[in-house]
Design a protein around this nucleic acid. Structure first.
Lengths: 239, 239
DNA sequence: GTAATAGTGTCTATGAGACATTATACC
DNA sequence: GGTATAATGTCTCATAGACACTATTAC
C-alpha cells in the first residue's frame, strides 16, 4: 500500500455482515433479517450495515449485533465476535460497489429478537432452512458454519453457546449440533475434564436438565482459550 | 446489509496488503518494499495497493504479487494466496480512511525482486529483521506469521515453500524455519510418509542437497490438502 | 418396575516422542 | 579414516475410541 493520490482513489462502500449462531432445541440456528428495501426486498439476509465514518469494522459489527438481537450493549460486550473474511466480488451488490467484512458471532440461546434497527423483521432460523438468502449470503453462511465447526476442534469456543452455568451434556450437544454427529458421552466427558481450564465445576448442587434422568453437575467456562490436544471431529473431514 | 441510500454511504478507500513469505538459507523471509511516497516515505512496508474499480480483492492481491515479485502472471497463477483478515482501524492511515484486506502468500525461494510496480525498492528480508514497518504492517506481519504457522499443522501447505521436486529434509526445514523449532528427523519422515497424498516419490534417482551426507530421495507435492491427524507443533502453544 | 441421562471403569489400537542403528555420500 | 545427512527400526507412553457397568432421577 504505497504511492497513491488520495483524491484519485476509487470509492467503495464498506459494510459488515454478521452470521450470528445459537443452539436451541438441538438445532443450530442463525439470526436472519427480512430486507425492507429495494435490493432483494422481502428476502431474508444476514444482519449487517454500513461502517460509520470513524468506526472500525469490529465496532460496527458489535453495534449491529446489539441492534439486531435487541440486547443492551452491556450484554453484547462479552459475546464472542470474530472476523470471518471479506467479500469483495464486484457484482455482489447489484447497485454499487460494496465490500463487506463478515463476522461470526456465537451466542447462548436468546429470546426472540425484537426486530430493532432498520430491519423489517428478524428471527432465529434453523441453519439448514436458511437458504436461499439475499446477495452472496449463502456463501458467507456456509463459510461461517465451516469456520465455527473447525474452531470447536481446537478452541474452547463451545462454551460461548452455553449459558453461564451448563452441564456437560449441554456442552456435548453444542458439538453434536454444530458438527451434525453423535459423540460418545463418556469419552467426551473424559476429554473435556482432562483439558485444564476448559470448564470448572460449580460449587452449588446439580440441576436437572430435561426432567429425565440423573441430574447433572454444573460447570462454568474456564480460563483456557485453546485445546491441546484438539478435540477432532470424527472422521475429520478435510477443509 | 439492508436498507441504504446509495448516494449517502460514507466513502472508503480499499487496498490489499501482502505478506509474502519464503524460506531461504534456513530463515523465514518476507517480501518488503521501500515506500516512495509521502506517508512513511523511505520506510519499509508490505507490498500492496488499491483495488481497481471492477476488481475483487483476490484479483488485486494476485496482480500486486506478480508486480512486486517480478514474476509473470503465469508463474504466480499457481502460487498459494490466501486471505488473512481485514484491517479497518480509522487511524491506520494518517491521510484518509483506508480499509485494507490482507493476504498471505507462500512461495518457493525466488530470485531477488526487480522492484517493479510503483515501489521504490523491493527485497527479501529475514522475518525477524522486518520490524518496524510502516502503518500497522507489524501487526499484519505478526498475524500472517502466526497464521501460516498454524496452517502448517493441519494442511499440506508446507510444500508451497518448496520447489517442484524436494527432499524430505527440505520439507522438514520449512517446518523448522517457520516454527522456529527443531524436529526429530526420523519421526518427521514417518509422519509425512504415513499421510496419504501429502508427498509422492519421484521416479528419478536421488540428488545431493548440501553436498554433504547421503543423497536424499526426491518427492513432489501430492493431491492431499489437509493432514489427518495434524502435525502439531511441539509444546503446541495456545492461540 | 421402565426409561432416560449422568457418571465410572476398562480394554485396545493407534500415533507420537525418544533414540539406536545402518547406509551412503563428500572431505 | 571422519563427518554429515538419509533412511530404517524399536521401545514406550499418552490418547482416543469402543463399550460395559453403575447411579439417580421421572414416570
Amino acid at each position: 500500500m504505497q504511492g497513491y493520490d488520495p483524491s484519485a482513489f476509487p470509492p467503495f462502500a464498506v459494510t459488515v455482515d454478521l452470521a450470528v449462531f445459537t443452539v436451541r432445541a438441538m438445532r443450530l440456528h442463525v439470526l436472519l433479517v427480512e430486507r425492507g428495501q429495494d435490493p432483494h426486498q422481502g428476502r431474508w439476509a444476514l444482519p449487517g450495515g454500513f461502517l460509520l465514518p470513524h468506526e472500525a469494522a469490529e465496532q460496527a459489527a458489535r453495534r449491529e449485533l446489539a441492534e439486531e438481537t435487541g440486547l443492551s450493549c452491556d450484554t453484547t460486550e462479552g459475546l464472542h465476535l470474530e472476523q470471518l473474511r471479506t467479500y469483495s466480488d464486484p457484482d455482489r451488490d447489484p447497485r454499487m460497489r460494496v465490500v463487506s467484512v463478515a463476522f461470526t458471532a456465537l451466542v447462548p440461546d436468546l429470546p426472540e429478537p425484537r426486530g430493532g434497527g432498520d430491519a423489517a423483521r428478524a428471527r432465529w432460523t434453523p441453519r439448514d432452512e436458511a437458504s436461499p438468502l439475499a446477495f452472496d449470503h449463502d456463501r458467507i453462511l456456509a463459510d461461517a458454519h465451516e469456520r465455527i465447526g473447525a474452531k470447536l476442534e481446537y478452541t474452547c469456543l463451545a462454551t460461548a453457546f452455553c449459558p453461564a452455568a451448563f452441564t456437560l451434556g449441554e456442552l456435548r450437544q453444542v458439538y453434536e449440533t454444530v458438527w451434525g454427529v453423535a459423540l460418545d458421552r463418556p469419552n467426551f466427558r473424559r476429554k473435556v475434564l482432562a483439558t485444564p481450564g476448559f470448564v470448572e465445576p460449580v460449587a452449588g448442587g446439580p440441576r436437572r436438565t430435561g426432567a429425565r434422568g440423573k441430574p447433572a453437575a454444573l460447570y462454568t467456562a474456564g480460563p483456557a482459550r485453546s485445546l491441546h490436544p484438539p478435540l477432532l471431529r470424527p472422521e475429520g473431514r478435510p477443509r
